[in-house]
Design a protein around this nucleic acid. Structure first.
Lengths: 145, 145
DNA sequence: CCAATACTTGCACGATGACGCAAATGAGCA
DNA sequence: TGCTCATTTGCGTCATCGTGCAAGTATTGG
């Protein structure tokens, strides 16, 4: 247990869920100074975390292609996992900002947050571009040695 | 690299790696017919899987901001995990197409695949847009009930 | 009020992931 | 050849994740 010495592992007790995911993010590394900061916030693991599971991503694709809000049980037909699993995945995706949920009577409709999602992706792409467009970067912010 | 093929599990022999990740992907769901297919391939969990870990994403941010190729030990200074862990993360990111590696003598330089990465992100954003631009989608491909 | 419908939540289990340490491999250099 | 530096790999450990089943909650209809 002492294996992971100091960082991210308060020995045992509280286990605040996905703890190590929160911690390991050294604000400003030695190299790579203050330039191009937007990438730090845009390269948010939470979004990717939501989309990294194939079941979840297929659910997103299903709803996206659907174009309208889909109920949980409707979406569940898209894949072979239990309805409860789908329910959990959808709420997870909603938490991550990928989906939007709307309750109507006893059914819950999930829809893709098209513009938010595409904005996140494009902003990230932009921030990556900004970091180092072709020519630039030589003698950039990161000390060579 | 197949670094973690069947490793770390002496107990259960066959363990076909990340099995469930491969499987759960019902080609064509009942709803959401053949329209807007690109999203299926672009919403690739593998890319997100690579970026979903905060340590990994901070490594990517570090290298991105760096602008040039960074050696493993250099990058390791950006975060507080063991060098071996960084090495594994970097090769994982390279496998996912996020980074590019180049060996020079005994050092390995990793650099962000700027254009590939931004292309993937923008294409995905485009495919999401295509799926359902504002007005469209009513009475789309997914049967309402 | 009761039953049915549509989800959500609790729980247990097996698989996977991230990690550190130590040993191994590879590549220059004296 | 032997040594050192840079990185990778083997292995054990612990936490987290995805999943199914069963029970619980909310909402609508009779």
């Amino acid at each position: 247990m002492t294996q992971m010495s100091k960082r991210t592992r308060p020995i045992t007790p509280p286990t605040p869920k996905a703890e190590h995911r929160k911690a390991a993010r050294p604000a400003t590394p030695k190299h790579a100074a203050a330039c191009c900061r937007p990438i730090d916030s845009l390269l948010n693991p939470e979004l990717f975390r939501a989309l990294c599971d194939p079941t979840r991503s297929s659910l997103v694709a299903c709803i996206a292609k659907c174009g309208r809000g889909c109920s949980v049980s409707e979406v569940a037909e898209c894949c072979s996992v239990d309805l409860s699993v789908v329910s959990r995945h959808l709420s997870q995706l909603a938490d991550a900002g990928v989906l939007h949920s709307r309750k109507e009577g006893r059914t819950v409709f999930y829809a893709v947050r098209y513009s938010d999602l595409t904005k996140m992706l494009r902003d990230l792409a932009d921030s990556i571009d900004e970091c180092c467009p072709d020519g630039r970067a030589e003698g950039g912010c990161c000390v060579p040695r």
